[in-house]
């Protein structure tokens, strides 16, 4: 075991875990931040997506020992009251069905819009390509990103 001090959603958190523990399980098991979901465990599905210094990253494949002083944002920390433009757009068009992959979808979409405020449809498709949704909500994900983009201007 080893002690780590990490920055999550603007707060410093101390955890004592194995050095190879993926950030995903630190968030879920140690910190109780269960919004970030386990999907495949091998960075293939995107359901565990969080922000590392504002960039989308797969927390299932990021060992705690590599987190260092980087600042982590999870779905719980994306906004105070669920009112980030991406979250509002998601509710407006009822994107989720079962909802399981949606935290990862939203985090990836928010990272996209932070970097590319007015993405083209192709840019949306390319950026969201790695986030799998078993319910098949892709068309609404795209619609919601377009809406969020227009409201962020």
């Amino acid at each position: 075991m080893a002690a780590y001090s990490i920055n999550v959603n603007g707060e410093t958190k101390k955890v004592d875990v194995l050095p190879d523990t993926p950030l995903l399980w630190v968030l879920r098991d140690s910190l109780g931040l269960v919004g970030t979901k386990y999907g495949c465990g091998i960075a293939q599905c995107g359901s565990c997506t969080v922000h590392v210094n504002g960039t989308a990253a797969r927390s299932c494949s990021l060992p705690i020992s590599a987190v260092g002083k980087n600042s982590i944002t999870t779905i719980e920390g994306l906004s105070e009251k669920g009112d980030h433009p991406v979250q509002l757009a998601w509710m407006e068009v009822d994107v989720p069905q079962c909802g399981y992959c949606q935290a990862g979808q939203i985090m990836n979409a928010a990272a996209l819009l932070a970097k590319t405020p007015s993405p083209t449809e192709d840019q949306i498709a390319t950026a969201m390509n790695g986030n799998i949704c078993r319910c098949g909500t892709y068309h609404r994900i795209k619609d919601a990103i377009v809406i969020a983009s227009s409201k962020m201007k």
Partner: peptide
């Protein structure tokens, strides 16, 4: 359940 889903509240078995 929209708000709970988009804010990552516990809803699932896991």
């Amino acid at each position: 359940d929209n708000l709970e889903m988009v804010t990552g509240q516990p809803l699932f078995g896991l």
